[in-house]
Design a protein around this nucleic acid. Structure first.
Lengths: 239, 239
DNA sequence: CATATACCGTGTCTCACGGACACAGTTATT
DNA sequence: AATAACTGTGTCCGTGAGACACGGTATATG
């Protein structure tokens, strides 16, 4: 299942074809969206590992094998879930590229935070769905007229998206009053007694804890990236 | 297996405890490192999905169940593989923070490129291993004396690492003359006939293809981030 | 030196999950 | 009315993770 080479085209058709015309047999009782939504609900509740064909099938009220009439396999189901879960991009268009990209990035981070499993699902070679491509379109459009090349605009969008994904993931692990606090405690305990081996981290950690450590890694990366993009735009405009 | 809440402490002990003292029974025939290396080899060859207890056991010459004498479960094995595969960080220390971080980031990206499965393995709540913490230490140390706070230094390291991870992944998917080219073809085919819906991407893509599209997303993100960090350092120094 | 105690590797079993396949029922086409 | 295509279902199999009890082995204790 993990290595299903055949099917990029099939997956693309699944994600992009709206619906085939009138067919002969009995009319389907389900829709792709209903199936995907059931999967999203299961993943939101209990993680991506809890998304099983059986469970999704029960959620929509059919047998496990009935799902295979709609979806070639589980990988494709997850791809569908991703596009449905991430949803369409907001269309702010304030007019200024920086404000637009900032809002775009925060909105994307919020989506990832709402669907933590999406980070695990966006790994590896993938076919982009309509919504995902919509997000990319908005970011590239925001950079229109700034003097960046097309490749640079796409790179910028990819980097900003990567930041939102990676840093939100880290935030999800650090924040929340769940058993994740135990993780931070484990790390702190690990550091204790090893300050000689990791002096810089030890000092930084001590300082952070003193200041009331929260994780602003996403915001930090966002601002640094925007500053860097701004510098590039300025350089391009000068010549 | 995916949801094993118990064991952060056990995993930490596994990753960090060097070796217990002399024990009573027969001496173990294997070492943790040998097991981890076998796993790394399997993952490098056929992907993370091909890493099965059975296969790793065969590679080291024991039965599947013998591995459980060394490792609590597969998740822990993968965590071990990650730390072994990523290896220790280089210690360049050129003296200038920017050069150091640049080399650091490129080295990390190279490691990820060498072990593509590591990107999938670094997802979710994790306990850092010695090598992983070593990488963090080097990055934070490079920012010593720049005027950044400890929290900012840690954030910077996390963001740079996130960029290396996410962008290298994308590069691995786009490059190479494998069936991934088919993916790009699918995307291009998708875009064709939808330029009205995704005008910005269409224009950017056309321009990129004309210029001979390569993926420099990692380098782009790296330079933008370093520029942004440099701007922050300059601001801090001014007051 | 003898014995108990802990530990090592193995074989067998169970369970969960993804997926193949054949079958019966349903509906649009001819 | 007959046919062809499509839908949902039940049954089956392969694979992989992990539980558990067993026999063998090396160290600590008397």
């Amino acid at each position: 299942m993990a290595a299903k080479q055949t099917g990029h085209a099939a997956l693309a058709a699944l994600l992009w074809e709206p619906q085939a015309g009138p067919r002969r047999g009995p009319r389907p009782t389900l829709t792709l969206e209903a199936i995907a939504r059931a999967g999203v609900a299961a993943a939101d509740a209990d993680g991506l590992g809890a998304v099983t064909m059986q469970r999704v099938a029960e959620a929509v009220g059919v047998t496990k094998m009935a799902l295979y009439r709609y979806v070639p396999g589980k990988d494709e189901l997850v791809a569908l879930m991703l596009d449905v879960g991430i949803g369409p991009a907001p269309h702010p268009a304030s007019g200024h590229w920086r404000a637009d990209l900032e809002a775009w990035s925060r909105a994307l981070a919020a989506r990832f935070q709402r669907h933590p499993w999406a980070m695990a699902a966006t790994i590896g070679t993938r076919v982009m769905g309509p919504n995902e491509l919509d997000w990319l379109e908005r970011a590239v459009a925001a950079l229109d007229g700034t003097g960046l090349t097309g490749a640079e605009a796409i790179d910028a969008a990819a980097v900003l998206a990567g930041n939102a994904r990676a840093m939100t993931e880290q935030a999800a692990a650090a924040g929340g009053a769940g058993p994740e606090d135990a993780l931070a405690a484990v790390l702190a305990g690990l550091l204790r007694g090893r300050e000689d081996r990791f002096p810089a981290i030890g000092a930084a950690f001590a300082e952070t804890v003193r200041d009331g450590g929260r994780d602003e890694a996403f915001e930090f990366g966002l601002q640094r990236l925007l500053d860097g993009i701004e510098a590039l735009i300025a350089k391009r405009r000068k010549g």
